[in-house]
Design a protein around this nucleic acid. Structure first.
Lengths: 138, 138
DNA sequence: GTACACCCTGGAGGATAGTCTAGAGTCAAC
DNA sequence: GTTGACTCTAGACTATCCTCCAGGGTGTAC
């Protein structure tokens, strides 16, 4: 299978696949005499895996770690589990900080509305010194 | 006030302040004969403003827009309000997609746990074709 | 044997928000 | 007038995940 076919199959760009190869996420495939990459089904699976865990919020560098795990057969579930748990707590932290941000934005909007009702000429967001101490946000 | 003082006052690096100037977030201050920047209180306020709305999740390019609004006095509250609302709905979208991600991660962990209880040698995350269709995530 | 789509490489670029560096100059205090 | 802390500039670098490009070669169908 040549690279364009694989790209279409998986929904990636040709450039992205070559990028993954350069960055050791995908093994170097054999080539035709002319130098064209020739992929097998396992490569397609690897790419599908990459997409899938990328969808779980893993960075490419982390995915590289997972792929190495994937290579050996000795009960690799435990380290994967650990990584999933780490990722879950990352996500939960991000959620918390976004919730804070949401609260601060609502607060700012409320100030804004109050000022508009008063037909005041100065916007509290633009003028005030310290309207709501938005700190918690990431 | 020279740049280091301002930096300390606001909690930014000297480099960051110069960076803001280069990127038209902060006006160019007057200089001493020797070429040192001399800041006034209003510059400190501008920087405080930048920090504040950055804490509300605005990018520097967006903050530049807000700062322009800040210049004119003609009832600028309405456009600010609009931007705040846009930002709020961005945040809400991100929250939704992170919630999806959290759900997918929990699901993946559950699969993982099940497999470990079975003392199975293959990890469902590494092997399965399509364990939980993690799509909704950003 | 030629047309056309496809592939190759290496390197640049891009968005974001800065940080870091070298090498030189300045300010204030003593 | 010298010391020491501070500042100046331009440009390179960080991390992330690719995309785009030129200039050239390959594969296959007709």
């Amino acid at each position: 299978m040549q690279i364009g076919i694989v790209a279409k199959k998986i929904g990636l760009s040709v450039d992205a696949i070559r990028f993954y190869e350069r960055n050791a996420l995908l093994p170097r495939p054999p080539r035709t005499r002319g130098g064209f990459r020739q992929y097998a089904e396992t490569d397609v699976e690897t790419l599908a895996f990459i997409r899938r865990v990328q969808g779980l919020g893993f960075k490419l560098s982390e995915i590289r770690g997972l792929l190495n795990l994937r290579g050996n057969r000795l009960q690799p579930c435990a380290p994967v589990r650990r990584r999933l748990q780490e990722k879950l707590s990352d996500v939960q932290q991000k959620l918390a900080s976004l919730h804070n941000l949401e609260r601060d934005l609502r607060l700012a909007l409320r100030h804004c509305n109050r000022e508009m009702r008063k037909r005041s000429a100065h916007c509290p967001i633009l003028r005030e010194r310290n309207p709501s101490k938005p700190e918690g946000a990431k």
